[in-house]
């Protein structure tokens, strides 16, 4: 078995419990060492702070559009230098294999959470960038988790969050829209994305869904910057 990222041989531990697991380890321990797991930090989003709640989350609580949402974010790794190179490989070289290699880690991370009977909402891409890339990275992550996926949302313009400044991100606009009306009464929802920075994308979609009577909304992202 070879590591997906560095293509070295993976040292497999011969444990008894390995007989009963189906997921193979795809990434070697050396590559995983470069990634830093999210622990502690902000209660709501996991940002590295000494306070209980970070400034961004305080803003979301005080803003009158969003204060009823209470979206809690779960992330797997911090977005450090090594993670940046990985994201570059995934998004711009189009190497989905790396993303799928995190299958075992994602499943292990989500095990303690009660995610049964929930619906996944991957963040959509704009039409042209989807054509260019050939795949939607959040949809790939959603497919790993293996729950029903809702794809009733589309992106209306090609303005990228990563190109905006901090204040411009937070202003609510109708960048994401519903394709058709739907009723999500008494349903729990997980929004899925690759990177969580200020939380603007997640909150915009959460607002949209809460208008459709969704009960509980949280989000899961692979990286937290």
């Amino acid at each position: 078995m070879k590591c997906i990222i560095c293509r070295d041989n993976i040292y497999i531990r011969h444990i008894f419990s390995a007989l009963f697991t189906t997921d193979k380890q795809m990434i070697c321990d050396k590559c995983l060492e470069g990634l830093e797991k999210v622990e502690g930090g902000c209660v709501r989003c996991g940002k590295k702070t000494n306070d209980i709640i970070c400034n961004d989350c305080l803003f979301w609580e005080q803003n009158k559009d969003y204060n009823l949402l209470k979206v809690i974010n779960y992330s797997l790794y911090y977005y450090n230098e090594y993670a940046k190179t990985l994201v570059k490989k995934i998004k711009f070289n189009g190497d989905i294999a790396i993303l799928l290699a995190f299958r075992q880690q994602i499943k292990k991370f989500l095990k303690p959470f009660p995610i049964k009977d929930k619906i996944l909402v991957p963040v959509p891409l704009f039409k042209t960038s989807l054509q260019k890339r050939g795949f939607n990275q959040s949809e790939v992550i959603a497919r790993i988790i293996n729950l029903p996926i809702l794809d009733n949302i589309y992106k209306s313009n090609d303005v990228k969050q990563s190109k905006k400044k901090r204040i411009a991100r937070i202003v609510f606009d109708d960048q994401y829209r519903l394709k058709s009306k739907l009723n999500l009464h008494n349903k729990d929802i997980i929004i899925i994305d690759d990177i969580y920075t200020t939380g603007a994308t997640v909150h915009k979609i959460a607002k949209l869904l809460s208008d459709c009577n969704a009960r509980n909304i949280c989000s899961f992202t692979l990286f937290r910057s």
């Binding site: 189009g94 190497d95 294999a97």
Partner: peptide, 21 residues
């Protein structure tokens, strides 16, 4: 890499993705 997302060669990925489509 073989999956429903398309099949592509990982060896020459740095030179541009060469895949089935």
């Amino acid at each position: 890499f073989i999956d429903d997302f398309g099949i592509y060669c990982r060896k020459c990925l740095n030179f541009g993705k060469s895949s089935t489509y």
